[in-house]
Design a protein around this nucleic acid. Structure first.
Lengths: 347, 347
DNA sequence: CTTCACTAGAAAAACGTTTAACTAACTCGG
DNA sequence: CCGAGTTAGTTAAACGTTTTTCTAGTGAAG
C-alpha cells in the first residue's frame, strides 16, 4: 500500500549533484540559479517524486499556509455555502483549510481554537457560536494570528468582521410586503437575544414604519432558531382568529418549520398566506409557486472574508497593523411566487 | 490584535527551572518526572500560555495528527453528513481535519492529493470523484500514508473502502414496492456508467425478479445525477401513456427533481403515484405524507471509516500491513407516506 | 599583474520539538 | 564498604527545510 520513506531535499540534491541550498532556491524561485542546474534539479525532483515536507518548511519559515475555518454549525445550509466558497478561494490562493465544526457548542469552539493555535494556522476564519463561554472574547482577541469573524459579529471585540447588513435585509422584506398591501404581518424571529434576529426585525419594523405601517407586536414569535421552534411558532400564528396575511421567517431552519406547518394545515401559498424567507435553499424548488426570499450575498461574503484575511496575513509580516475593519454587505430581494397582493384589504 | 511571539518550550523550561526534556516529558506524560517538577512545569506552561508548535513536533516525531478529507462534492447533503460525523469523530480522537472539496473535478482532486502529501497528513479519507483522470488510481495507490475510500469504490484499487451495500439497498426498495402490489415501476437511475447506480438498479431488478416480477426496461431513465436530469426524466416518465405507479429515484438530487416535476404536474403523492427515494433529507418534512426512503447508515459509515483508518495508522507504525479491507454496511427501509398500495391493480 | 567587485554556488546555522544517550545520586545485596 | 541496579534528571542529536554567511571563480579596471 504505502511506499518507502519519502525523499528529502538532500536526496534530490545528491541526485542532481548540487547542494541542498541550490535545490531549495530552484524550487522556490528565490535566489540565482543557472539554467543548467535548474534543469538538473527539476529533473531530479520529478524523478524522485519529491514533495517538500510542509512541517519542516513552516518550522523554518514561520508560515504554515494553513487557514482555520471554525463554523458554528455545519448543518446550516447557508454556512455550508460559505464553507464551500471559502475552501475554493483559499485553495486557489495556495492555502489549506482545517475545518472545525463547533455545532453551536462553545466548549468545542474553545478546543478547536486551541488546536488551531497549536497548528500555528496563518489565519482563522470564525463563524462564532451564538452564546459564548465566558472567556471566548479573550480567546479570540488574544489569537496570535490574524482572525476574522463571519456572519455573526461579537460586540466589543476588536476583530475584522464580514456580515450581511441585516437591518437592510429586514427593510427589503418590509418594502416588498408593503408594496403588496400587507398589513397583518407576522414574524418568526428566532431568539431575541441574538443580534442578527434583532437586526432583521428592526429592519422590518423600521421599513414598515417609514411607510406608515406599524408592526403588530403580538405577531412576533420569539423562541430559538430550530426547525421545531419555527413549526410551533407557525402553528400558533396560523391559529389566530385574525390570521396574518404574510409571514416573515428570519432564518432557513425557521422557514422550513413554517412551510411544514402550512402544508400540514392544508393552506396554500400565496392564496391563503404570503411567505417570505431568508436565503436560497436547495429545496426551494419544491415549494410550488417558488419561494420569495431575501438573500445574503454568500459568495461576496466569502470573497471579502478570504481576501481581507489574506491581506492581514501579508501586512502582519511587514509589521503594519491598523484597526479592525467591519464590513457589511448588502442583501437582495428575489421575488417568486410565495408572496402576492392581499385579497381582501381590511385597511 | 496579535500579541508578541509565542513562548517556546525553552522559555517554559527556564521559568520552571528545569531542562526542556523534562518539560517535554511532563507535557506528554512520557518518562518519569517527579511530582514536584511536574507541578512546576505545568504552572510555568499555564502561566506563559504555552502551546506546543505542531510543526516542530511533527517534524521530529513523524506524525502530524492531521487527516485529509477529500470529498467529491460538498453540496451533496449525504456527503455533508459524512463530513460532519467524520470531523466530530476525528476531532474527538485528537486529529485535525483538512477539508478538500473536489467538486467532481478530477484535476482539483489531484491537486488536493498532492497538497495532503506535502502536509504529510497521517491518513486520507477520500470520497473519489465519479470519473477519474487517468493517473488517479496510481496517485491513490502510491499514497505514502494510509488511505480509505468512502461511499464510492474504485475497481482494481488495493485500498480499504467503506460503502453502503447498494445491491441490498435496491432490493429493499424492490421488496417494499412489491409488497404494495406495484408492477409498473420506474427508475431514475442517474449515470449508467456509475457503479453505485448500477448496483442499486441491479438490486431492484433482482429483488423484483425473486418475487417473480420483471422490471420494464423502458421505464429506466438514464442520464446524469443532477437535479435537472431528475426533473427531465420525471417529466418523460409522467408523460407515458401508461403512467408508472411507482418511481424509484436512486439519489437525492434526482429525487428533488422528481418531486419538483410531480408538484408541477399537480399530481398528488401517494394517490396518483408512489415515490421512494434514497437517504433522509433535511427538507423531507415538506413532502406532505412524508417520504418513504431507503437510508444509508451514514453515522455507522463514518465511524467505521475513522476507526479503520486510525487503526491502519497505528499498525503502520508497527510495520504490520495486511491486505485491503472492503467493508459494506447495510441500508434500511423507512416507510412513510409517499408509498401506498396500488389502487387499480392491472396485473 | 594585482586588486576589486560581482556572481553562482556551497556550507552551516537555525527553527522548536522529541528522544536516545548519558550522568549523578541513591539503594541495596554481598 | 563496594559494585551493580535503579531512578530522575540533563545534554545533545536529529527531524527537513530556509536563509544567512562564506568561498571560489570570473571579468574588468587600474
Amino acid at each position: 500500500m504505502s511506499g518507502g520513506p519519502l525523499p528529502t531535499i538532500h536526496e534530490v540534491a545528491r541526485l542532481a549533484g548540487v547542494s541542498v541550498a541550490t535545490v531549495s532556491k530552484t524550487l522556490n524561485r528565490s535566489g540565482k540559479v543557472s539554467e543548467l542546474l535548474q534543469e538538473r534539479v527539476n529533473a531530479a525532483a520529478q524523478k524522485l517524486g519529491y514533495a517538500p515536507h510542509a512541517s519542516a518548511r513552516s518550522l523554518r519559515s514561520g508560515a504554515t499556509r494553513i487557514l482555520g475555518l471554525l463554523v458554528a454549525d455545519l448543518a446550516n445550509p447557508y454556512f455550508l455555502r460559505l464553507v464551500e466558497s471559502i475552501e475554493r478561494l483559499s485553495s486557489a490562493a495556495g492555502y489549506s483549510v482545517i475545518l472545525c465544526n463547533s455545532a453551536e457548542d462553545p466548549a468545542r469552539e474553545e478546543r478547536h481554537l486551541a488546536m488551531l493555535l497549536s497548528q500555528r494556522a496563518d489565519g482563522a476564519i470564525v463563524i462564532p457560536t451564538r452564546r459564548g463561554w465566558s472567556g471566548r472574547q479573550a480567546a479570540l482577541a488574544n489569537l496570535p494570528m490574524p482572525g476574522i469573524l463571519v456572519d455573526r459579529r461579537i460586540e466589543g471585540l476588536d476583530l475584522d468582521s464580514v456580515t450581511t447588513d441585516n437591518v437592510a435585509l429586514g427593510r427589503l422584506a418590509a418594502e416588498h410586503l408593503d408594496d403588496l398591501g400587507h398589513r397583518r404581518i407576522a414574524v418568526i424571529m428566532g431568539s431575541p437575544e441574538h443580534q442578527i434576529a434583532r437586526h432583521r426585525l428592526d429592519g422590518l419594523r423600521s421599513g414598515l414604519a417609514s411607510r406608515g405601517v406599524t408592526l403588530d407586536e403580538r405577531l412576533i414569535e420569539k423562541d430559538n432558531f430550530s426547525e421545531a421552534a419555527g413549526h410551533a411558532a407557525a402553528l400558533r400564528l396560523l391559529g389566530h382568529a385574525q390570521r396574518p396575511t404574510a409571514i416573515f421567517a428570519t432564518n432557513n431552519h425557521l422557514s422550513l418549520g413554517l412551510l411544514r406547518a402550512i402544508a400540514e394545515r392544508g393552506l396554500s401559498i400565496p392564496d391563503d398566506l404570503s411567505v417570505i424567507a431568508v436565503d436560497e435553499l436547495p429545496w426551494a424548488g419544491l415549494v410550488r409557486p417558488g419561494m420569495t426570499v431575501v438573500t445574503q450575498p454568500s459568495e461576496a461574503i466569502a470573497e471579502t472574508t478570504v481576501s481581507t484575511l489574506l491581506s492581514r496575513i501579508l501586512e502582519g509580516r511587514s509589521g503594519a497593523e491598523d484597526e479592525a475593519r467591519s464590513i457589511q454587505l448588502q442583501p437582495a430581494l428575489v421575488v417568486r411566487g410565495s408572496t402576492a397582493a392581499v385579497r381582501t384589504s381590511s385597511t
